[in-house]
């Protein structure tokens, strides 16, 4: 839904277009630390997930 809203804008920036995917990956990587039992690394994993999500969108 959020992705569609951004894409419907007149001239969206690439950074904004990639943000929904980045947020999804951030949430997934955040949950990964719970699965792995590494709550100390949650912040780092979140950052990695967000950057990866952005990259996935841009590469696609």
């Amino acid at each position: 839904m959020r992705q569609r809203e951004i894409e419907a804008e007149a001239a969206p920036a690439l950074h904004d277009l990639a943000s929904p995917t980045a947020e999804v990956m951030r949430a997934i990587y955040s949950h990964l630390t719970i699965v792995q039992g590494l709550p100390d690394l949650q912040g780092v994993y979140r950052q990695i997930g967000r950057a990866l999500g952005k990259m996935v969108y841009l590469l696609d």
Binding site: L14, H15, A18, L41, V44, Q47, I48, A51, L52, K54, M55, L58, L59
Partner: peptide, 30 residues
């Protein structure tokens, strides 16, 4: 523009991965 954003994102990944323990599998993967 895509390449510039990708490079920035990759740099962010590399910087953040540096904070992980050396044995973490994400080091190689990412």
């Amino acid at each position: 523009q895509v390449k510039a954003l990708l490079d920035a994102a990759l740099l962010e990944v590399e910087r953040t991965v540096g904070e992980l323990p050396a044995t973490d599998y994400l080091q190689d993967l990412l």
